[in-house]
């Protein structure tokens, strides 16, 4: 319905003004955080805080990255990156092969496995926190990258997405490949995988954000500060009670924590929208 027929003069201005107001509201918290990350602690503890950026950006970010609170932020960023990439690649890899099995093979218990994967939709980690933690502890996965990644890589959504995609690929393509002499592995590698490129990329964007933004699981599984991810590690910087903390450093950390996923969204907006819309189908 774009355009909504005519609109002229002040109505047009009002429309743009409305949108800009909306954007201002949406972006305000981040702007405030940005300003706070460029001033000194002294500027903040005497309210109201300034509303224009100050000159201390480099200083605050350097402190955050190399010192932080206990754990330097670079270390947490690294942990987050490993976790996010691990979850993303892991989810895509195990989902695409299981979707391949379900769509292109006929075998006993096929539907049983399908429903088993489907049911995981109903079991978010938040719901089974304690026993899942217990399993991870029993497998000595605490404070390890494996522990951060492995329990989160089962994905019904990604499996369904690939299944959906495979079902739209014409049957004749498999037949042509079989006549050309391709077996199941060759077909997967030479035909299916290259044909799924865009979907894999779109899913990558969405899953990277999902992985990076994990909070509860890293909170449970990493007790060693060196294994903290940035999204949960920032919690340890926050004041408990009336304790004073250096807000400029915390805000710099917050901005650093959102930078990678935001960059992914901005630079891959088309893939991001595609991934988002498709993974909700």
């Amino acid at each position: 319905m774009s355009g909504m027929v005519e609109k002229k003069g002040w109505r047009r201005v009002a429309l743009h003004a409305g949108i800009i107001t909306g954007i201002a509201i949406v972006c305000f918290p981040i702007y405030v955080a940005f300003v706070a990350s460029t001033v000194t602690q002294g500027d903040l503890v005497r309210p109201p805080m300034p509303l224009l950026p100050g000159p201390h950006l480099i200083e605050n970010y350097t402190r955050a990255i190399f010192q932080g609170y206990g754990t330097p932020v670079w270390r947490m960023l690294w942990n987050s990156l490993v976790m996010a990439l691990g979850i993303t690649v892991g989810k895509i890899a195990i989902s695409i092969v299981s979707a391949y099995a379900i769509v292109y093979f006929r075998f006993p218990f096929r539907m049983f496995f399908f429903w088993m994967i489907f049911l995981t939709l109903m079991l978010p980690v938040e719901v089974r926190i304690v026993p899942t933690y217990a399993v991870a502890a029993d497998l000595s996965l605490l404070n390890s990258y494996t522990g951060l990644i492995l329990p989160l890589i089962a994905s019904a959504t990604a499996t369904f997405l690939f299944r959906q995609l495979f079902l739209t690929i014409p049957d004749e393509l498999v037949e042509a490949a079989r006549i050309d002499g391709a077996g199941p592995i060759r077909f997967f590698r030479d035909i299916l995988l290259p044909m799924s490129r865009t979907n894999i990329a779109a899913l990558f964007v969405i899953l990277f954000i999902y992985g990076w933004n994990q909070y509860l699981w890293p909170l449970l599984i990493t007790t060693d500060a060196d294994m903290n991810t940035i999204v949960m590690g920032i919690k340890h910087m926050l004041p408990t009670g009336d304790q004073t903390v250096e807000w400029p450093v915390i805000m710099a950390t917050a901005l650093l924590a959102m930078l990678p996923p935001v960059a992914v969204v901005l630079f891959m907006q088309r893939l991001f929208v595609k991934g988002l819309v498709e993974s909700e189908k």
Partner: peptide, 18 residues
């Protein structure tokens, strides 16, 4: 199929798009 020494032309051609 590949052991039968045949070749097939499909209605929708079934060309590998990539």
């Amino acid at each position: 199929p590949r052991e039968r020494d045949i070749a097939m032309v499909f209605q929708n051609y079934a060309l590998y798009p990539h």
